[in-house]
Amino acid sequence: MTKTSKLIVVIGSVYLIGLMVASLGFSHFIEPELGKPEKLLIADDGSLIAMAPFPPSITYPLGSDIDGNSYLTKIIEGAKYTIGLSVIIAFGRILLSLVGGYLLSLLPVSVKSMFKGLADALHYAPITVFTYILITPVILTFSWSYGTPTKIIYPCLVLIAVSVPVLSLYVQEEIDLASDNEFIDSARTMGAGRSHIFKKHIVPFLTPKMVVTFVQQIGQTLIVFAHLGLLNIFIGGSETRAMDINIKTGEEITRTFSMSNEWAGMISENFQYIRSFPWMVLAPVTAFALTILAINFIVYGLEAKRRPKFAKVPKKSQEPAVVTLDKEKFRMVK
């Protein structure tokens, strides 16, 4: 069990770290030397084979976009933004909910149950909806009035804040669970102060659980990113360009572009092509799926390590131990 769980954690981590390294390395070393993408695919005899976007093939393993850029390189390039942002957000969530959970654990039981009741409302609408409603005014609806720093920092703060209530309650429950242990009472009788007990007895209990929760939250954030991408919201700077002008009404037809190759941005950019060029959406969605799978691998492995399913009891030999008493073996200890 431990061996497989270790292997699973290693597989997940290698995938994630490899992707991040490839992504950073790509934009530093490979991308500057890359030529302009080919829009047309021309055979040796000069006849036209295909026009971009190209479907998945050997040269373009995940297909290409309208300008002929391969999706594989786009996805590798975008990985650092998407994964990096979700790691930052997950970290912020854990940090804030640790503080929140600690503060909650100091409160009396009646107040705790009141907070629990209030947080129950989050069960009746998915977190994507809340995030969407709080982020959209800044990014889309009233986008004219907010500057770029606000457009990047504010959504991250919202993404952090939405999960804090539920996570804080979880942390508080874990703290309370740890405080129920007998050794806490013993420590208290021996004169340990509150901060000493927290540092020496509760933190070690909490740390492994928080590590698992942190990894889990990275996955949760990625799912919300993917959802928001479908709802036309993506972080990392979006830019609305006027594409065309409607002659009759004089209205501008605009399209939102992602400025980086961030995956959620790629989903929202290409969702209109889902019927004609499905790989354009499928490529980033698959990237999300694989990354989330890798993260769940890590979570699964860590959890399996934490609580072994059945503790293996070494089998005792069935034969009754023959005890021979030898007078010579007894010696006086001085």
Binding site: L222, I223, A226, H227, L230, I267, I274, P278, V281, L282, V285, T286, F288, A289, I292, L293, N296, F297, Y300
Partner: peptide, 15 residues
């Protein structure tokens, strides 16, 4: 089951 539950919903719906 483990692999299926790890996949995000939009992936499954699109597929």
């Amino acid at each position: 089951l483990f692999v299926l539950e790890s996949l995000p919903d939009i992936f499954i719906i699109l597929i």
